[in-house]
């Protein structure tokens, strides 16, 4: 296989360019592995934060795949986001146990204090706000997760203190 020429989109900022280069390296690492697309997308999102269509196109070109195939995978998995994401991901569990113990109230409260719809990102890009369908900690209901941290038996009163931890 010949040397793949990496063509970066025009008009990238220096920071974006740096991220694209990292992603190009990831693609090279996984290029010959079967079923590599999901892994590459996963790592690319870690680097870039989200999956804008321009980045999907870059990955499609590098892998010699069609854009519609790449975008098909990106839009299928809720893990991937095509919009910019917050610094932290806040997920309120709405599995059965959390739901009946007040998960829904937490959602309503958060929508108000963060001023953001479900699936959206706060204006200051601090949080992306989502719901989870059971995180497997039903005994601790209701739970929320911020990034990889789980908070148990959350109440509206406790929320402010939790959010404050992520002020910076």
């Amino acid at each position: 296989m010949g040397e793949k020429i990496v063509k970066y989109p025009d008009s990238l900022t220096e920071e974006e360019r740096h991220k694209y280069e990292q992603i190009a390296n990831i693609i090279d690492l996984y290029r010959d592995k079967e079923g590599n697309l999901i892994q590459i997308l996963h790592l690319a999102q870690q680097v870039y934060g989200y999956m804008p269509i321009e980045l999907q196109r870059f990955i499609a070109e590098q892998l010699d795949k069609s854009l519609s195939e790449v975008s098909g995978v990106v839009t299928f998995y809720s893990f991937f986001s095509t919009k910019p994401r917050g610094k932290h991901t806040l997920r309120v569990c709405l599995g059965t146990a959390c739901y009946v113990r007040g998960g829904k109230k937490l959602v309503e409260h958060l929508q108000k204090v963060l001023n953001v719809e479900l699936g959206g990102t706060t204006e200051d890009r601090r949080f992306t706000f989502e719901v989870a369908r059971c995180i497997g900690a039903c005994g601790l209901a209701p739970t929320i997760m911020i990034d990889d941290e789980v908070y148990k038996q959350v109440t509206i009163q406790k929320l402010d203190a939790i959010l404050a931890k992520y002020a910076n």
Partner: peptide
């Protein structure tokens, strides 16, 4: 081998 259409979303 064109790949213009694919399933999007779920």
């Amino acid at each position: 081998g064109v790949g213009v259409i694919n399933p999007q979303n779920r």
